[in-house]
Simulated assay, not measured.
Amino acid sequence: MYHSDILKNMVKNKIAILSAIILICLVIICIFAPFLTPYDPNKQVLNERLLAPSMTHLWGTDQYGRDILTRCIYGCRISLSVGIISQLIATVIGYFLGVAAGYFGEIVDDIISFIIQVFSSFPFLLFAMALMYALGAGKVNLYLSLGFLSWAATARLIRSKVMEIKNQEYIQACKIDGGSNLRIILKHLLPNCIPMLIVSITLGIPNAILSEASLSYLGLGIPVPTASWGNMIAESQQFIRSNTYYSLFPGLCIIVTVMAFNMFGDGLRDALDPKLHSQKGGL
């Protein structure tokens, strides 16, 4: 499929375009965060604690007098970095294991398929909680934990794709010419799997964002006082009746970001390869 065809298919999907605009705005906000707000996200100003939204503090302040809008902006940095980096890690693991299972088959396929079933059947959040408890709270540990636990769906997709194309003539010709397995995997199989990998990353990011928020809410993700949407909601629990805005705004940030990634991912999936829709639904 040519790039022009992909672009035409994307333009037809107005919801995907709107989602793309929202995501671009979020990225811009993350990059220019220090220039968008005059406040320090971690500086406590106790004489301004729990102020309602106003022109001075558009989204109000928390129990330590910190500007909520500022902390949500910096929390966006955390969420996007965790989502993107963890999914890149998961994609690398999923690709090579999926290729190994589909390309080599036999006992290699049996072992990897069994591991995929184990990772797919075990409750994800419970597994993540146990791993984060063992490693300790922190951004780097979140990258590694969520990446290590999120590769199974990608591996299953890649395995099915490789099994479909590994016996095609151009791959057999490469083998006859003495091409190594590594060359075939990187030069011939990878280009065919790129649409799946792009869609897998895009649809995996919102799951990682939700997982980070859940773990931070439980005290196992981003440690306080670092701004994170999850730990902001956790800190706002005791004020949910008297200062509803405190938990409302970080919650809305999570909802908008996750919905934008999901809708953009759906549109991108259909634009790259409509057949991916049925394959993804069968997982």
Rank of each mutant, 00 (worst) to 15 (best):
T257L: 12
A33H: 09
L97D: 04
F114S: 06
T70Q: 06
L144S: 03
Y246I: 04
I17E: 00
L283A: 01
P250W: 12
D5V: 12
C174T: 12
I73S: 12
A16K: 13
S81I: 07
Y74S: 10
V99E: 14
L218G: 02
V92K: 11
A227C: 02
W151N: 02
P41S: 08
L182C: 06
L80N: 03
K12D: 08
S121A: 11
L126C: 05
S278L: 11
L23S: 10
I84N: 02
A260P: 09
M55Y: 13
F32R: 07
K280R: 13
Y246T: 02
A260F: 07
I15M: 14
G204T: 15
M163L: 10
L18Y: 13
R269V: 01
G83F: 08
F264C: 13
R77E: 10
L182H: 08
R71H: 03
D5I: 15
Q117R: 15
G138Y: 00
N47A: 08
S121L: 09
G138R: 04
Y133V: 00
K43C: 01
L157P: 00
W59P: 03
S79W: 14
L7V: 12
V224E: 05
T37M: 12
I24F: 15
L144A: 02
I255R: 10
P191I: 09
T244E: 13
L186N: 15
Q87P: 01
L272D: 06
G230H: 15
C193I: 11
Y170Q: 10
V82R: 09
T202V: 13
L131D: 00
F32H: 06
A155F: 14
I85Y: 09
V11Q: 11
I78T: 04
Q168C: 08
N141I: 07
G219A: 01
P223D: 03
M132T: 02
Q44A: 14
F122W: 05
I198R: 09
T154F: 04
R269A: 02
P274Y: 10
F114E: 04
Y245R: 13
R159T: 06
G138H: 03
H3K: 07
I84M: 09
C72S: 10
D266I: 08
I78D: 00
Y39I: 04
G60M: 11
G75H: 10
F35L: 14
C193T: 09
M196A: 05
H188V: 00
S4T: 14
G83T: 14
I240N: 03
R71L: 11
P225A: 05
G94Q: 15
I194Y: 11
Y246W: 10
L131C: 07
K280E: 00
N9H: 07
S278M: 03
Y64K: 12
I240H: 05
A20W: 06
A271F: 07
G179W: 11
L26H: 05
S120E: 06
N262V: 04
Y103M: 07
C30N: 13
F264N: 06
A90E: 14
S160P: 00
I201H: 06
G75V: 06
A101N: 01
A137L: 04
I93Q: 02
I165S: 03
L149W: 00
K275R: 14
F32G: 00
D109T: 09
Y95L: 05
V99L: 04
N167Y: 09
E212R: 09
I171R: 12
F119W: 08
